[in-house]
Write a protein that binds this DNA or RNA. Structure first.
Lengths: 139, 139
DNA sequence: GGTTATTAGTGGTTGAAAGTGGTTGAAAAC
DNA sequence: GTTTTCAACCACTTTCAACCACTAATAACC
């Protein structure tokens, strides 16, 4: 299961470190795509293939948008010996990533965020709605 | 699987570079045809033959239009030593391709777009519909 | 608790591959 | 026979992946 929050800086060459714990979970090669709310999604090959299969089976009307969104933006990523990755420029632009970056575990995927955006998202998470949902779950 | 987004300029002689990653997948020779939404489709010979078979099996009424659309516009493409391709003028006109071009991976085919058109298509992808479909898929 | 060993993270260099521009020569068109 | 076109090269530039070397942080051990 992917959990945790990790902060890094992107170096002048566009490389960013990628948390070793998440790397271990994803194995040597994985997929980065556009995600929701202008973050990037990171999938293991296994999860990615599942998603691809599901998208294939969608009715045409929904499939086209999903295909363009995910396949169009997807990139195979292989970290270098030091565990760094290089994110394609179009994805960096999409996610507003320039310098400070956060990698966040999210169950079956990881997410990459512009740090400021991430902070904002966290602030906006209303404590009440969380509490409410917890109650629904019986916790 | 064909994925990713790659940007190039068409040079004064009408040549455009073609991404090596997609070239590798398609092998030495492939097919370009008119596609949906005024883009161009790029198929591997294998996929192309499959499509041709499928079209053959259609009921006559539907087959004629499909045949005219796909076979009529199809062209075999062989990249030069540097990996560039030359797109026939009728296809360039169809897709409004003049200078800035994007090549996009889409699972079993690639698409070639006028850059501005592609941007527009991406912008029009509604975030809600993507989110909704994701939820349906259980991601 | 302090020292050492190990792993995580950062910066920089280099060489191969990807990408771009231009030239030439054969074939087709006039 | 001349001109035009275009595929096939050649040469150059840029990019980026693969290293190497170093520092910081963490874990293990005495």
């Amino acid at each position: 299961m992917l959990i945790g929050e990790y902060s890094y800086n992107i170096d002048p060459k566009g490389r960013m470190n990628f948390p070793s714990k998440i790397r271990d979970y994803l194995s040597e090669i994985f997929i980065v795509t556009k995600g929701l709310d202008n973050c990037l999604f990171v999938f293991s090959m296994e999860e990615w293939n599942k998603l691809a299969e599901d998208i294939k089976r969608l009715p045409r009307s929904k499939a086209v948008a999903m295909q363009r969104f995910y396949f169009g933006s997807a990139q195979e990523i292989i970290p270098d010996k030091q565990g760094r990755i290089l994110i394609p420029i179009n994805l960096r632009e999409y996610a507003n990533i320039e310098k400070e970056v956060v990698v966040v575990g999210a169950l079956n995927r990881a997410e990459i965020w512009n740090t400021d955006r991430w902070k904002k998202v966290c602030d906006d998470l209303s404590a009440e709605s969380i509490a409410e949902t917890m109650e629904e779950l019986g916790f």
